[in-house]
Amino acid sequence: MSECSCTSSQSPEFDATALEAILSSGSTVEGALVPILQASQDAYGYLPRPALEMIARSLRLPLAEVYGVATFYAQFHLEPRGKHIVRICHGTACHVRGATEITDVIVGELGVEVGSTSEDLSFTVESVACVGCCGLAPVVLIDGETHGGLSTQAARRIVSKLQREQTQ
């Protein structure tokens, strides 16, 4: 049941300072879990395992429950995220107007599979359901900015530009 405390619980790569501040300022009342997860994700960009373990200990909640909440909400991420987030809409309208082809282009251009992040942590590519602007279909959101009515060429242009900006 025990494990070496030299390694696991205080992971050397994990800097707990920000989380400690969140946990001490945030209240530990019932229902505090989601706001604490949000603040932690803001601080770390995602929810690293040691953070979830520390939150569970601090709130006296089972890790299984904390993990359950973190995996339930789409807003939480358990893996590091890219600097740029590319969201490709796969709502019905976008699907009909070529979201699949656009996805192929973006994946090919950035070298990142859907649902994952490039190794250099530059890009995260995600597939999302309807983003609510079907009139502009097909639609891609890059860092929250909407790009509509895309052809495959336009999509290639946009991500190439993004790549250039990133390497400069």
């Binding site: 089972p62 890790l63 299984a64 993990y67 359950g68 995996t71 339930f72």
Partner: peptide, 9 residues
């Protein structure tokens, strides 16, 4: 013991 949880959605 709370070993299990409901994970995902």
């Amino acid at each position: 013991a709370s070993v299990y949880g409901y994970h995902g959605r």
